[in-house]
Amino acid sequence: MAVVLVDAGGTNIGSVRYALQRLGVDAALTSDANAIRQADRVILPGVGAAGPGMARLRELGLVELIRSLTQPVLGVCLGMQLLFERSEEGATECLAVIPGAASRFAEAPGLRVPHMGWNRLRVERAHPLVAGLGTDAWAYFVHSYAVPANDSTLATADFGGAFSAVVARGNFHGMQFHPERSAGVGARLLKNFLEL
């Protein structure tokens, strides 16, 4: 299976790549349009800010290409937020393959932003991507912006209210946490994605 990681400048690409290697998949790191178009699975990782992330995809000429993909695509963390219409972060227009937008967590007593650490996943809708998750499944999050629960939400986590932790719409999928750093739960979810 050809799996590609879209190189949009995020620093966690190495970690995602190692996680896939632990599952026996050697993913190529690329920003080449042909390699992305022909891959069986496309992963859009990303740590950083929405504005620079989209700017990088535009520079690489990948915006229309990603929108037109028909194979399973997975956005991780910022990569998931970029799949939505926009992000409040820098008032950024995103890829808009899933309706909705990312907004900043409101700080409140006991809610320290960034939302950093392990939070429990709650499956909202059955889907092959979240198959096998128990009721005590925890994932590792590091982010300050999030997408509210919506029609595409498969699993939520709670941080001053439920937000989208796993999403899917058509062939586009997203995980707000870092599956590559979420121990056995993360490995299971990545494996589910590879097996879609």
Binding site: S15, Y18, V142, S182, A183, G184, G186
Partner: peptide, 11 residues
């Protein structure tokens, strides 16, 4: 650092 990153799946 790289050896650790390859081996473990926690932050």
């Amino acid at each position: 650092v790289e050896r650790v990153a390859r081996a473990i799946d926690i932050p």
